[in-house]
């Protein structure tokens, strides 16, 4: 066996498996997106089996583009992804800088901070929406309730009572409505993924040029300008990576939406695909192709960065 064949042979199981995994379902999606294909239609039973004779061209794409749900799902996907990115990057940078220098108990704080990342998405959603954010029984409801009780008590107090009677009664927010459930998803995913951002930024901060920093301190640079002109530029690439990796993960966010928002109208692209897939496979597939395009836009940039570091 020549020097070349064996390596290829060793790679082939992985390559073949991934090739099948990628090509077969995706080409089926592509095919279904161009035909009329529904699971239940009594008047047109011929649409219930996938066949080329049901060719619809770009009809499914048109149908999807014109549906209100699609526009809403795209907007909502972007709202959720962008908010999470914004919050995790800001929090991640601040916390990474905060805990980077050693302090008593640094190891324990690191462990506390990283823990949320390992919580499975289903538990994350169930925990936040029920035990924490529920407007009556969750911590939110209990907290709002006790603040109201406290203010109520103070209203009757002599002297300061008039001041507290100006205060409005607080009402807890229900996070199960269409719009607020998107906020709930943003909160819980930010909680889960900020640790990831912190970890990446901390790893990168450890390779920061210390001599440069010492020189800056000797030159009398303030903490802020050290952060602004040394640390932040150093974090540029890790921030780009965190943004892109998270964008790819969160564009296909599913479990959280499913658990928090089932049936209340809040949806993102994967959720909409799931809804379409209950009957209209053609539309589900066309939406799927849109999702692939959206993810690819991000993936191209990410792969370019990763590719540069690959062979170093």
């Amino acid at each position: 066996m020549s020097n070349r064949t064996l390596p290829r042979l060793l790679q082939s199981p992985a390559v073949v498996l991934l090739l099948i995994w990628m090509l077969v379902p995706l080409s089926m999606t592509l095919y279904f997106s161009f035909i009329r294909y529904v699971l239940n239609n009594l008047r047109k039973p011929e649409w219930m089996t996938p066949a080329l004779s049901n060719w619809r061209g770009f009809g499914n794409y048109e149908f999807v583009l014109k549906s209100k749900d699609f526009i809403f799902a795209i907007q909502n996907s972007l709202l959720i992804v962008c908010s999470i990115l914004f919050l995790t990057v800001i929090l991640g940078v601040l916390i990474a800088v905060l805990i980077n220098k050693s302090f008593p108990g640094q190891g324990i704080v690191r462990v506390l901070l990283i823990s949320p990342f390992f919580v499975m998405p289903a538990v994350n959603a169930v925990l936040w929406i029920n035990m924490i954010l529920d407007p009556v029984l969750g911590l939110q409801g209990i907290a709002v309730g006790s603040i109201n009780d406290l203010v109520d008590g103070l209203r009757a107090a002599p002297g300061v009572g008039w001041f507290f009677s100006l205060w409005p009664e607080l009402t807890p927010i229900s996070f199960r409505a269409t719009q607020t459930s998107a906020y709930a998803v943003i909160i819980m995913v930010t909680w889960q993924w900020t640790p990831f951002a912190i970890l990446i930024f901390m790893t990168s901060l450890q390779s920061e040029d210390q001599q440069q920093k010492e020189a800056a301190i000797l030159d009398g640079a303030s903490t802020w300008s050290q952060f602004r002109f040394l640390t932040l530029p150093h974090l540029g690439r890790p921030i780009a990576i965190v943004v892109m990796i998270q964008a790819i993960f969160h564009l296909s966010l599913y479990a959280e939406i499913e658990i928090v928002s089932r049936g209340n109208g809040n949806k993102n692209l994967p959720y909409l695909i799931g809804e379409f897939a209950n009957n209209n496979i053609g539309a589900a597939s066309a939406t799927g192709i849109f999702a692939v395009i959206l993810a690819n836009i991000v993936a191209i940039f990410l792969l370019r960065i990763v590719g540069k570091t690959l062979m170093e």
């Binding site: 991934l18 995994w21 990628m22 077969v24 379902p25 995706l26 089926m28 999606t29 279904f32 790819i248 564009l251 296909s252 599913y254 692209l269 994967p270 959720y271 695909i273 799931g274 897939a277 496979i281 589900a284 597939s285 799927g288 192709i289 999702a291 692939v292 959206l294 993810a295 690819n296 991000v298 993936a299 990410l302 792969l303």
Partner: peptide, 12 residues
Amino acid sequence: TKMLPAAAVLYP
């Protein structure tokens, strides 16, 4: 391949 959204191939 890791970056393909899973939902896109849900029905297939």
